[in-house]
Computed example of a mutant assay.
Amino acid sequence: MINLEWLRTFRAVYKTKSLSKAADMLMVSQPTVSQQISALESRMGKKLFERKSKGVIETDVGQMLNTMISGSIEALEGVEHKIIKPDSNLKNILTIGVSPHLYKTTFCQNILSLGEYVHLTFGSKQQLIRDVEEGNLLYAIVPEKQNTYDTYCHHLTAQNVVLVGTPDIDFNE
């Protein structure tokens, strides 16, 4: 399996065209960058860069790899930046369970409007309620009301769709 750090190092070298500049960018030593690029090339069985006296030039395989991974690596770096940024406005993670049918028919268009980072889990009504009771989910969206000792239900729509949560959750929010 390819190490994610190798790909991150590859992207830095690709952007800077230099092992030493990539090392500065990643805050590691130049030999570390060189070792990671060598390990990635060894794992892939292909050269990714041609070493020159004033830096590196990507090979055709290097260009192809960059095209394939650039969006993913930048997305991961964006997540990292958002989480570690001191003034981050990242809100709490909402963990919501919902059946695949309810998600597709009712909520897929509205989930993003929550303005929070939402982690969805799909499952049956019974499993989702059990996950709320066990603390694995903050909420579950199910097709019918089913209060238990450890949960409370709140109607979401005029249709028979309810939000299940523990008694300490403020449903008015």
Rank of each mutant, 00 (worst) to 15 (best):
M1W: 08
I2R: 07
N3Y: 11
N3P: 08
L4Q: 14
E5Q: 09
L7V: 08
R8F: 06
R8N: 06
Y14Q: 04
S18H: 05
K21Q: 11
D24H: 09
V28I: 15
V28G: 10
T32V: 11
T32L: 13
T32Y: 13
S34R: 14
Q35W: 13
Q36V: 06
S38C: 08
L40H: 06
E41A: 13
G45L: 11
K47W: 05
L48E: 12
L48P: 02
F49T: 06
F49S: 02
E50W: 12
R51E: 04
K52E: 15
K54S: 12
K54A: 15
I57H: 05
I57G: 00
E58C: 13
V61E: 13
Q63T: 12
M64L: 14
M64V: 14
T67L: 14
T67V: 07
S70V: 09
I73D: 02
I73K: 01
A75I: 00
E77V: 05
G78V: 00
E80L: 11
E80I: 12
H81G: 05
H81N: 06
K85T: 14
P86C: 12
S88T: 03
S88K: 00
L90P: 06
I93K: 00
L94F: 13
L94V: 03
L94Y: 11
T95I: 00
V98D: 01
L102K: 10
Y103F: 11
T105F: 14
T105C: 08
T106E: 15
C108M: 10
Q109W: 11
N110V: 13
L112T: 14
G115L: 11
E116Q: 14
E116N: 10
H119A: 13
H119T: 08
F122Y: 04
G123V: 00
S124V: 01
S124I: 04
Q126V: 09
Q126R: 05
Q126I: 08
E133S: 09
E134T: 15
G135H: 10
N136M: 15
Y139Q: 05
Y139K: 02
A140Q: 07
I141E: 00
I141S: 07
E144S: 04
N147D: 13
N147K: 04
T148Y: 01
T148Q: 05
Y149V: 06
D150V: 05
D150F: 08
H154R: 02
H154F: 07
H155R: 07
H155I: 02
Q159L: 03
L163M: 04
T166G: 06
T166D: 00
T166I: 12
D168W: 01
I169Y: 01
I169A: 07
F171V: 07
E173A: 12
E173K: 02
